[in-house]
Nucleic acid binder design. Structure first.
Length: 583
DNA sequence: GCCGTTTTCGGCCCGACTGTTTTCAGTCG
């Protein structure tokens, strides 16, 4: 059973226990364990086999036993019993905003509702409003919640969230009285998807800002509006589709801003660790202040976010690392990585031109690459089998090589590299013969077909492609399309092992709907010494600018410039590619 | 459920907002 599957099972146990009225701390322990497992470094099966699970802070005897059973047998009677005892409709009800486990349990116990339809009917009859602790407004919120389930509360991609967040941020910055304003939350931590937007503002007076905020043209619903906090739903139309996303605004005084920006950037788990460190120092950290044991007169005053970390005895921790996956320990030990920056990138390898399914010529793409300040443009058009994307036949490949040689004589300040995005065929072989493959500067091997293979076959297929001497790097390792298509079933830990064994690189595909390899595996790949390549997979000149989305993933995966192959200069890249070809 | 320089019990981060109460529980982050 994979980490994600184990984590999902633990999360489900926590939810089901909550719906049975189990105490919050117990249910939270399961949720916490789910997070620990999903973000675990190293191979879960190994850790289980070596009985090392109990050493993880937050996993005790009971969880170790349940996780071990899940990993070794693929099932857990305890979970199946819970599923049998709790109607699945109750879990669905939790997706309604303002409904948590306690209210759902009460609705089920008192009104005998077990499905969304039954809950809707009970609301229509006015029965919910009559329940103790409920009322007319709560009933209306539930009715609205059921109606909006399809749109509000869904996650959106980071590029979409950033667009809405920055639109609101720019409007806020123009308001009179606003001193500092920042997007916080998962958008600032550069997570691949976001459930909502958090914006923090410091100002002299909060109420005019709140009033202006809820009246912004993007605001389609006001969920809550208080003196310092408001929640709204924002809607924006982009390219024919609409983005619907919740946004919270908090307004604080300017001396509270540094503490608040830490607090609202999160993650929640990171904040809890910071608060514990404060307690160990006899201090108390909340979103407004860092106070000492004798109250306000002991308050530690700082000017900015870095000052908060310094006061806790820590170096500044970049937002991308704030997930409580070891960054606190690294900060305490002084071993935080110097994360890669967009400006470290010197070129790109995986891109398409008009020759396959791109929209620009080789020359246009190369010049656009140069305009971004890069030294090399690697073309990686599709290979012959991928006819739907106009994959290149061997003859067309040789013609493209000639064109590249000509362009390289003519162009200044940018060099075109001869690459291919070569299909990994169902049996794991590559889509060109060895002689042709040897003529490329490098080969990006990718899966574009047969996504439904059983996990063992899919894994063997990709591992075989990685063992091919011509393969340089693996493209989009899981084929996932965020929020649209699941990753194909594959044992990524086995793939990483194969890459390490054969000395191959792995791509971070920077397309915002891919961001594949996922950051949790990027971190593990680094630990295994696997070089990472950040590729825009550009099909048009403007898509070359997607590289920063890949940088986000690299930073969340703790990568430094030294860990990323295309942070190397053209000279170094050519030397390494030549070495790999045995020359 | 977990955890331990208050160690096998009794805590577990903490504040804003809402809706229901008339002092607080639930939800959310």
């Amino acid at each position: 059973m994979t980490k994600d599957a184990v984590a999902a099972a633990l999360d489900e146990i926590g939810t089901l226990l909550g719906l049975q009225g189990e105490n919050d701390f117990k249910t939270r322990a399961y949720g916490n364990a789910a997070r620990l497992i999903s973000q675990l470094d190293g191979d879960l099966a190994d850790i289980v086999a070596k009985k090392q699970l109990g050493k993880i802070r937050g996993i005790g005897e009971a969880l170790e036993e349940k996780i071990t059973t899940l990993v070794t047998t693929g099932r857990l009677q305890y979970l199946e019993d819970l599923r049998a005892a709790v109607p699945p409709g109750l879990v669905e009800m939790l997706r309604i905003p303002t409904l948590g486990t306690k209210k759902v349990k009460l609705l089920h116990d008192k009104l005998k509702v077990s499905t969304l339809a039954e809950l809707q009917a009970a609301c229509d009859r006015g029965e919910v409003a009559d329940l103790a602790g409920f009322g007319a407004k709560t009933q209306q919120r539930i009715i609205d919640g059921i109606r909006f389930l399809g749109t509000v509360g869904k996650r959106v991609r980071v590029d979409q969230a950033a667009l809405v967040a920055n639109t609101l941020l720019e409007r806020l910055r123009k308001l009179p009285g606003v001193i500092r304003a920042e997007v916080c939350g998962s958008v600032r931590r550069k997570k691949e998807t976001s459930k909502d937007i958090d914006i923090l503002v410091s100002a002299v007076g909060a109420s005019p800002i709140m009033a202006a905020f809820v009246a912004f043209p993007e605001v389609t619903q006001i969920v809550a509006q208080g003196p310092t906090k408001s929640s709204i739903v924002a809607t924006m139309q982009v390219g024919g589709s609409s983005i619907v996303l919740g946004a919270d605004l908090r307004v604080v005084s300017d001396d509270q801003f540094p503490y608040a920006v830490v607090y609202f950037t999160g993650s929640k788990e990171h904040n809890i660790r910071l608060r514990q460190i404060a307690i160990e120092k006899g201090l108390s950290l909340n979103e407004y202040t860092l106070s000492g044991p004798r109250g306000p007169k002991d308050n530690v005053k700082v000017a900015d976010e870095a000052g908060v970390y310094k006061a806790l005895g820590l170096p500044f921790i970049p937002p991308e690392l704030r997930e409580d996956t070891g960054e606190i320990e690294a900060a305490l030990a002084g071993t935080l990585p110097v994360l890669i920056e967009p400006s470290d990138i010197r070129g790109v390898f995986h891109n398409h031109t008009l020759a396959s399914d791109g929209t620009a010529t080789l020359e246009q793409m190369a010049l656009a690459t140069k305009a971004l300040g890069y030294e090399y443009f690697g073309v990686g058009d599709h290979s012959q089998t991928l006819t739907i994307a106009n994959g290149l036949t061997p003859d067309r490949v040789r013609a493209q090589w000639k064109e590249i040689d000509k362009l390289n004589e003519k162009l200044e300040g940018v060099t075109i590299l001869k690459g291919t995005e070569c299909d990994i065929l169902p049996d794991g072989s590559l889509d060109f013969d060895d002689e042709l493959l040897a003529g490329f500067d490098y080969v990006v091997a990718s899966v574009h077909s047969h996504f439904q293979l059983p996990e063992a076959e899919q894994t063997a297929r990709v591992c075989k492609a990685l063992s091919h001497p011509a393969t340089t790097m693996l493209g989009h390792a899981t084929g996932r399309l965020l929020l649209r298509r699941e990753a194909y079933k594959i044992d990524l830990d086995a793939v990483l092992k194969a890459a390490a064994q054969h000395g191959k690189m792995i791509e971070i595909n920077a397309q915002p709907d891919r961001l594949d390899l996922d950051w949790t595996y990027v971190k593990r790949a680094k630990a295994m010494g696997i070089p990472i390549v950040i590729n825009p997979d550009a099909h048009a000149t403007d898509e070359l600018a997607l590289v920063p989305y890949g940088i986000n993933v690299a930073r969340r995966g703790w990568l430094t410039a030294a860990d990323v192959f295309n942070a190397r200069s053209l000279k170094e890249v050519l030397k390494e590619l030549k070495r790999r070809k045995g020359g």
